[in-house]
Amino acid sequence: MKSFRIVVLAKQVPDTRNVGKDAMKADGTVNRAILPAIFNPEDLHALEQALCIKDRFPDSTITLLTMGPVRAAEILREGFYRGADDGILLTDRAFAGSDTLATSYALSCAIRKIKNFDIIVCGRQAIDGDTAQVGPQVAEKLGIPQITYAEEIVSLTENKIQIKRRLERGVEIVESSFPVLITVNNSAPHCRPRNAKRLMKYKHASTLSKRQESEEDYLSTGNHAHLNIKEWGVVDIECDHAQLGLGGSPTKVKKVDNIVFQSKESRRLDDFDDDINVLMKELITSHIIG
């Protein structure tokens, strides 16, 4: 039976979805430190699609690949709990300051090293940037086709995949051969929950840096090779250094402004009947409504 080699691209992101007031500093900037770091939601949707492929072709392997600081290994562990076979953390100071293009270049070099991949799956976009660029940019760098906004795998055979993708006002079913890169939409099914057995098995999985930090017996994970999360730096991938990090990023942030809105003179009303009646009367007499 055919087995697919699947790579899932994932990102650890600050949870920007419910930024409370306490997340804002007095000067109007975001206090990133207090936002929880999470598995980017659409990347979890992507992991689910990979697991669905593995359900149908059980000999398939799922490698989770993330780029970020050492801490980002947390989402690899989360991926193990849910069914990923292998995890790679791409981490190096040289990657710092990457824009989407430099990020996709580094990821594509890491994927080349993984080799023989059939399917790359990732979320459509990350919630901290919403650009939806890294997926297509990686596909272009690898010279493979892409299917964006995927919602469902309609059919899968040894050499073809059909995907339903969500458009603005409808759906489209497209067919591709392998290898292919798929970006998964937020309308796709949520990821299955953690598996209790896998949780027990992998809860101590860590990277070498992490073990060094905690001054454990870091050189060996004993007989538990699965507890070692692979960590790749610039030296581990074949790449052109000029295309990495800040230097390899064509876009630069010229300036960042905190937002100060000109406060309007707003009228304050309570939810008493009288207040609302006065407001509605004003709106009707000034022909804004009615």
Binding site: P136, Q146, T148
Partner: peptide, 23 residues
């Protein structure tokens, strides 16, 4: 920044090694 533009833009920017700003 439509389904088409967001599919096409990053692909073109990646091929030309040029920067793209979304939305």
């Amino acid at each position: 920044a439509t389904t088409i533009g967001r599919d096409l833009g990053p692909r073109v920017s990646s091929a030309l090694k040029s920067g793209l700003t979304a939305d």
